[in-house]
């Protein structure tokens, strides 16, 4: 078939995939520190977007101010969620923890709909609709911006995990008991990871919101996010980046060709298939760690 078409699908897919990575990064941050698979991450993305709109449309703040304000708000919201809902369940069977995050997901989504209504709202962050050509390839400008932001954020996190506080977070994800034994406040670390994940979610909400408009469908990014997370390894940020690109390319190319055959909707099928296959073949994902076995 047409090579340019294939290339165009791949590149745009990779860019969109990096934006899935953004959702996955939030999931990874929380999973790394507390082994909680956060099924409410999609709703956090949605909530973040609504909060930005609340600051900009509701209170009239300009976008460049509304976004940081919303991030700060979500930082504390994430902490609050951990404190009020998750901490009590520490040590409980995983089914209850999963159910709690699902309950949060339902509650946040319906809560946002109750407050802001079901119709989509535009998020304007000043990305023009003009086509962007890379040689013969037509790129989606919004995806380019989103992918760039994701990579920057990833770099920030890589650096952060080298700082003292970052090292402490990694220590917590290694061993709770040992962390307590040297005076690390595990609770505070876990709360911080929720806060950071919520900030990342806000970023994702802004970017995805500007592409598709802000409504409850933003929360369905969860499926993509968790698939990317699992594929990359739920405790690996770098894995999330690579897996995002991989899934994005796969999804875009496969649906580019399959949709004509199957009559649409093959995107979700690809995602579900990747999720199942990953779990069957390599449940720890591409870069997830098995515990080190010393030789």
């Amino acid at each position: 078939m047409d090579l340019t078409y294939l290339l165009e699908l791949s590149v745009n897919g990779a860019l969109a995939g990096l934006m899935y990575s953004l959702v996955a990064m939030g999931i990874v941050l929380i999973y790394k520190s507390s082994s909680v698979p956060n099924l409410a991450q999609g709703s956090l993305v949605m909530l973040g977007a609504y909060i930005v709109l609340a600051f900009s449309n509701g209170l009239g703040a300009p976008m460049w101010m509304a976004i940081p304000l919303a991030m700060a708000f979500m930082f504390f919201a994430g902490m609050g969620i951990e404190r009020l809902a998750l901490r009590r369940l520490a040590g409980r069977p995983i089914v209850m923890i999963l159910m709690m995050t699902l309950g949060l997901d339902i509650f946040l989504r319906a809560g946002a709909m109750t407050i802001w209504g079901g119709s989509g709202r535009p998020m304007r962050i000043g990305i023009s609709d003009d086509p962007l050509f890379l040689g013969p390839l037509l790129l989606n400008r919004a995806y380019v911006v989103g992918a760039a932001v994701t990579l920057v954020l990833f770099a920030v996190f890589v650096l952060f995990f080298r700082t003292r506080r970052g090292v402490v977070l990694r220590a917590i994800s290694d061993d709770y008991m040992a962390s307590w034994s040297v005076g690390i406040s595990v609770e505070r670390g876990v709360a911080l990871s929720w806060a950071l994940a919520s900030v990342v979610a806000t970023t994702a909400g802004v970017l995805w919101g500007s592409i598709q408009s802000v409504d409850q469908s933003l929360s369905t990014l969860l499926l993509k996010g968790i698939t990317v997370g699992v594929l990359g390894g739920l405790d690996s940020l770098g894995g999330a980046i690579l897996a995002g690109i991989l899934l994005g390319v796969l999804e875009s190319v496969a649906s580019g060709y399959l949709d004509k055959l199957l009559g649409g909707g093959s995107r979700d099928l690809v995602v579900a298939a990747v999720l199942i296959l990953t779990i069957m073949i390599r449940p720890h994902g591409l870069f997830g760690r098995h515990d080190i076995e010393r030789i």
């Binding site: 003292r164 090292v167 402490v168 990694r170 220590a171 994800s173 290694d174 061993d175 008991m177 040992a178 962390s179 034994s181 040297v182 005076g183 690390i184 760690r289 515990d291 080190i292």
Partner: peptide
């Protein structure tokens, strides 16, 4: 401070980072 039974170092951190985490 207690040194736990069975060593329990932070396995995925380097010795340097182990020490940083504890300070």
């Amino acid at each position: 401070v207690q040194v736990l039974e069975g060593r329990r170092v932070f396995e995925h951190l380097t010795p340097d980072e182990n020490l940083v985490a504890a300070s």
